[in-house]
Design a protein around this nucleic acid. Structure first.
Lengths: 151, 151, 151, 151
DNA sequence: TTTT
DNA sequence: TTTT
């Protein structure tokens, strides 16, 4: 315990399909962009303004596979996780910086693919899913042996 | 996954010592009251008002033991968990209802017992601690075989 | 500022219609039950178990009227607020205790009444709505002159 | 209402002093870096690893002035807000991207400057402070007329 | 009393 | 690039 807290909670829509990448050891990582919207009225002009924020969502291993299987562009989802900054060297030699949301928990709020109905139940059991009183049947290997890969 | 969310996040002070109870199988449960305060100014009278809410905190197994070991009355702590309603029959034959916060994660914000400094690191690794990329060294048995006990 | 935090975040379904009550000064309060579900597999028996928790949701003034207008039994909603304990004397003379969630923010995730489409935009502007950069057009009177009424 | 949620909750330590900037109309914006830590044990090597994430915190107007007045490098604070991405053109002509946490609520968890004790009460009344039953005495102008400035 |  |  470090006495700190790093928590993000988002409800938004997928702006694109889930992209998954498998590592040699069998681990995998999934990524997708998530849009949240804010609407307000400009006080000076009186016009209604909508701002969209795009978030880089990152999911690992079993949870990644569930997302890849059941989520599609446009779906609404709740994700909970941590902010993580990542840097890498761009092709032009300059450093690039990105902030990602590394998912610890999620729940589907709509899915276009309605075939998941029953499967959906275990769909919310990501890595070390905190809201499960009993242990998940499938042990999830969370080893971050990919940590220095440019993802 | 059920498509729902049940989350509570509190920062408050312990109103009493942690009380722990061990079950036969080795499981245990710890309880303590946590106070949060709200201060506002009454618009009509202009006086400052402070309201204190008391929350029933429930922690299980390894996390319970960490709390019992390191937290004391007056300590400040962050807890995250789920709301759970519990009912039982009182001595007068009437049903009693209580709402509890079942802890999934926590972090110490102050402790009177400063001896924990180093131990503190694993102090924040409750059951299925979600913010850990690697697995906790000690597997935590979360079996709720005590679920129908009146706690 | 009191150095404490009292926050609840729920996604659930309304178990009943919104009940609204108006006070003399024009203030009002709305209440509805909200269900969250938890599903897990019993480790011993292998059977799937679903637990439902019921939460007492309380909304005030303008936000209350929006809820009453647009939410119906069965709708899914996100609510954010504070835990508040309330006690009152029952008809049998015994004290009763309830824990409520006093809403500070909310967003509709589905509504059966689809006629709200456009109105919905301001539907998420409860009292002192925090996610609005510009001020809401309608000042909301939040005076808690009803605090000792048995609601 | 947009049916989305964009929420960040952090407990961390200030990595530097609060920097405040005043605009012509009297509005102001404060910024400071906030560190959160994550500690875990590498499963392969068995060594303990600590990761620090740095977050760009942005506060506006009255809340900004309170932060500037009472927070110092090293202080621990809870902040709640929204993720906001900002881009601007760097001196080299390349676009720069940053993710910021725009604060909606906060509470001091420690302060080196203990003189605030009493003042602290209003220290937690940022813009449209959601946890206040009564209205703040000082109306806060939240107009974002500075939105296209490179902050 | 909700929902999947 | 989402959604309402």
């Amino acid at each position: 315990m470090s006495g700190t807290l790093n928590k993000v909670m988002l409800i938004g829509h997928l702006g694109d399909e889930v992209k998954i990448h498998y590592f040699e050891g069998g681990n995998c990582i999934a990524r997708f962009p998530l849009a949240t919207n804010e609407t307000y009225t400009n006080r000076q002009t009186g016009e209604k303004v909508t701002n969209t924020e795009w978030h880089n969502i990152v999911v690992r291993n079993k949870a990644a596979e569930i997302c890849e299987k059941y989520l599609s562009k446009g779906d609404k989802v709740y994700v909970e996780g941590r902010l993580k900054n990542r840097q890498w060297q761009g092709e032009d030699g300059n450093m690039r910086y990105t902030t990602e949301v590394h998912v610890q928990d999620f729940t589907f709020l709509t899915t276009k693919n309605e075939s998941l109905q029953n499967t959906q139940m275990q769909g919310t059991a990501p890595q070390n899913e905190p809201s499960r009183p009993s242990a998940p049947e499938v042990p999830i290997d969370d080893t971050e042996e990919d940590d220095d890969l440019p993802f």
